[in-house]
């Protein structure tokens, strides 16, 4: 009797798990099948059906012909822009975050707690509050609509998370390591580069994963600070799906959505539990 009810429980549990997984996966499935269908097939009201004659035409259109605002040459320029923006934004932000974390966890100069507190509160300020002054400040030095400009903005807004990740990571290391290095006469920079950075590989990876996905998925900062020439993929995607000219081709829309999500999804599925670690490290110990 006991065993029977236990196995019924297992069956209900498995059924719920399968149902939940299918529900969560459904939009991904719909995106993929829609992107492989012709417009006639899409119009037939079979949202969930497999494509009858799978074709990559919509993908080609999305990549090189779809209209994203004034120009009609697809998302490929946005892909390059996002890449150009994401790489330096990640390198600079992770390096600065590691340096900040090192100083705030181990050196703790006077005022560093106050600075860290201010930084953490800054993480919660809506971007709109700081946006116009930053546009003006960057405009004054000619950086709005330039690569250095958008990179600086991404570094500014990622500083709290990057700093927090490394501060907590370094604070959890045995302090003897740090003390031994100092007794051996290692200075500020050598202690960091030769003792701590070589041990930071896991957190460097976690921080880079968080930052690449964060920057790639950003829309607002790219819209305001990158300008037309450097518009990232998310901005182009939004222009594409909300364009009012011509008839909408949902196949192209979904191919474009998948293309835009490709990098973060690949990073996510390849990095597995590191991504989870980034979320929980950033959230739980903040």
């Amino acid at each position: 009797m006991r065993r029977a009810s236990a196995s019924v429980g297992r069956i209900v549990l498995h059924a719920l798990v399968v149902l939940a997984a299918l529900g969560v996966l459904l939009p991904l499935y719909v995106m993929i099948v829609t992107s492989l269908k012709s417009m006639d097939e899409i119009r037939s009201g079979a949202l969930f059906a497999l494509p009858q004659a799978p074709s990559l035409a919509a993908w080609k259109d999305a990549w090189s012909h779809a209209c994203t605002g004034l120009a009609c040459d697809g998302l490929h320029a946005g892909f390059a822009n996002s890449l150009w923006i994401a790489v330096p934004s990640t390198l600079v932000a992770v390096a600065l975050g590691a340096l900040n974390g090192y100083v705030l966890a181990l050196w703790r100069p006077r005022g560093s707690n106050l600075l860290f507190g201010l930084l953490m509160i800054g993480a919660f300020i809506p971007v709109q509050v700081m946006m116009y002054p930053l546009v003006r400040a960057l405009g004054a030095v000619g950086l709005v609509g330039s690569l250095p400009g958008i990179v600086v903005v991404h570094v500014i807004f990622s500083m709290p998370l990057m700093t927090l990740l490394f501060r907590n990571y370094y604070a959890a290391l045995p302090v003897e390591l740090f003390n031994a290095a100092r007794i051996d006469g290692a200075g500020f920079w050598t202690t960091w580069t030769l003792v701590l950075l070589p041990m930071s590989a896991p957190m460097l990876a976690v921080a880079a994963i968080m930052q690449v996905t964060g920057v790639w998925n950003d829309y607002l900062l790219g819209l305001v600070f990158a300008g037309h020439e450097l518009a990232p993929m998310t901005v182009q995607l939004n222009n594409l799906i909300n364009t009012t000219t011509g008839t909408r081709n949902y196949g192209v829309d979904m191919a474009a959505t998948l293309l835009t999500s490709l990098v973060p999804l690949l990073v996510y599925f390849a990095s597995g539990r590191w991504f989870v670690r980034g979320i929980t490290a950033g959230a739980l110990r903040g």
Binding site: N217, Y219, P264, V267, I279
Partner: peptide, 9 residues
């Protein structure tokens, strides 16, 4: 996985 996708997507 949805959390890895942008709000625009």
């Amino acid at each position: 996985y949805p959390y890895a996708m942008s709000f625009i997507a």
